[in-house]
Amino acid sequence: MTAVPMTEPMGQSLLDVEHLTMRFGGLTAIDDLSFTARRKEITSIIGPNGAGKTTVFNCLTGFYKPTVGRLKLSHPEKGEHYLERMDGFRIAQVADVGRTFQNIRLFPKMTVLENLIVAQHNVLMRASAFAVAGLFGLARYRDAEKAAVEKACHWLEKVNLIERADWEAGNLPYGDQRRLEIARAMCIDPVLLCLDEPAAGLNPRESLELNTLLTAIRDEQGIGILLIEHDMSVVMGISDHIVVLDHGRKISDGDPNFVRNDPTVIKAYLGEEEEEGDHA
């Protein structure tokens, strides 16, 4: 595959979703959806239940093969990848797309630290010459493992879990599990981070912390974040760009101010024109 050098203007586009359509038998879950997510931006996908938000994520991460459409990821270092053609694990391994789930999916029987080290296993596998060197504890592998632990600790500090590094992940309180999942996704060094309702089940204080964490990731790592969220305090507070879906179609696309005042959005959420509430 040839890496095409990127020559596009500022606000580099990272993910171009073009005419994405996903049908399950007679049901059209996503209908001709196009939008762009950029680097160093938080792009939120919102919409009422059943609008097809999670389906978009499942297409992006290789769970579903889209019926129609192109998902172009412009990796700043590795060139363009067409996600709709890639196997699930290669999307994480090669295209560097990280993801979290609506219902948390950690490795519950591993420790918190191990969860983060698994996410770095591609580096470690190479360094350990596919476990051979790991078995004999060779120096190169030891260094790689040390680096992996350091990176894991860095993220544990970021998400405030360093003191619980040795806990079994399944025993963590709910809010901690959410943050650990984000940390784990960050450990694969993603260029695009897809978060599926990270604020679900968090209390107001925790969701405020989440805002801080996500904006920090955006600003410090320079990656793009794709966010599905129902909590409007999170969405409106940190999004640079919002895409609104209803019944699989895009009904609005713009910055938070635009979307908040868009009559079609208000109608989709509340049925008829009314002032925006914290109805989520």
Partner: peptide, 24 residues
């Protein structure tokens, strides 16, 4: 202790999620 074993344990606990962190 090795990445290979960790990878196996990851697959064993959640195959889907293992793929999403890049495990083949």
């Amino acid at each position: 202790r090795t990445p290979l074993g960790r990878q196996q344990r990851a697959c064993e606990q959640d195959r889907t999620m293992a793929a999403l962190v890049g495990v083949n």
